[in-house]
Design a protein around this nucleic acid. Sequence first.
DNA 1: CACGGATCCTGATGGC
DNA 2: TGCCATCAGGATCCGT
Length: 271
Amino acid sequence: MPELPEVEVTRLSFADRIAGAEVLSVYLGKALRWPLGCAPAKLVGRTVQAVRRRGKYLLVDLDQGLLLVHLGMSGSLGFARHLAALGKHDHFEMRTSHGTLRLNDPRRFGAVVYVAGEDAPQARKLLGKLGMEPLSDDFDVARFHAGLKRRKTAIKQVLLAGDVVVGVGNIYASETLFLAGIRPTLNAARLSRPRVARLHAAIRDVLGRAVAGGGSTLRNFSSAAGESGHFQLEAMVYARAGQACRVCGTAIKSLRQGQRSTFYCPHCQKA
DNA sequence: CACGGATCCTGATGGC
DNA sequence: TGCCATCAGGATCCGT
């Protein structure tokens, strides 16, 4: 489910409401990707101060320490005053004075990790190598180009790796490369400055619009095609192998890169 | 060190 | 209750 826009929209959905809340109890279900890192009882009595985001991680600031929350491939967070009984895939729940925060994650690639601070070893391990925030002012063409020049692998895989720029997941990687007219297999270091500029613009444009549009993914959009207001985020290439390119009509191709599927238009995207 | 591949887990889907 | 293979929006870990 979650690429950066959904994580950001999730954050916006409860950050203000949970701020100031006191933690009343913590429930842990089946193991997630990593252990919580402290006894659940240690969180009781803490106060939630804010919810921030770094890449696809949510940072839930407490008066002592913080929680790093990642939704993995299949996770979703809900926050409400009253929730139904715990479901099969609800593996973390934190009751607070303002409502209950609950993580549902069928595949359990997600995680909730307590760290004493952002300098704690586990925090540095998870957050330390993250690249630039795509919607921040830091992410400019010059820095993007400099980052890509250091990487010798395919541009699609560099986008996914997240150590140059964060938040571009498998769907948006294919989509932004289409919008920029760049073949996904091209060596990142060899992209010309104008092409880097086009890719930079595509990333900011697509991610920014997805956040503004409520974080729904392109895949969801395609299934909801025809709904007004969402039309502009219809997938151009993702999951469209064999179908006609919406721009030129050429059949969309697919390939595997690092165990992930990639989609592109062989005519619109130049090698 | 940078890269490519294996890996964690459950569920949906489609072929046979 | 059919069985099996494949794929899924992530990203870390490990061997080379």
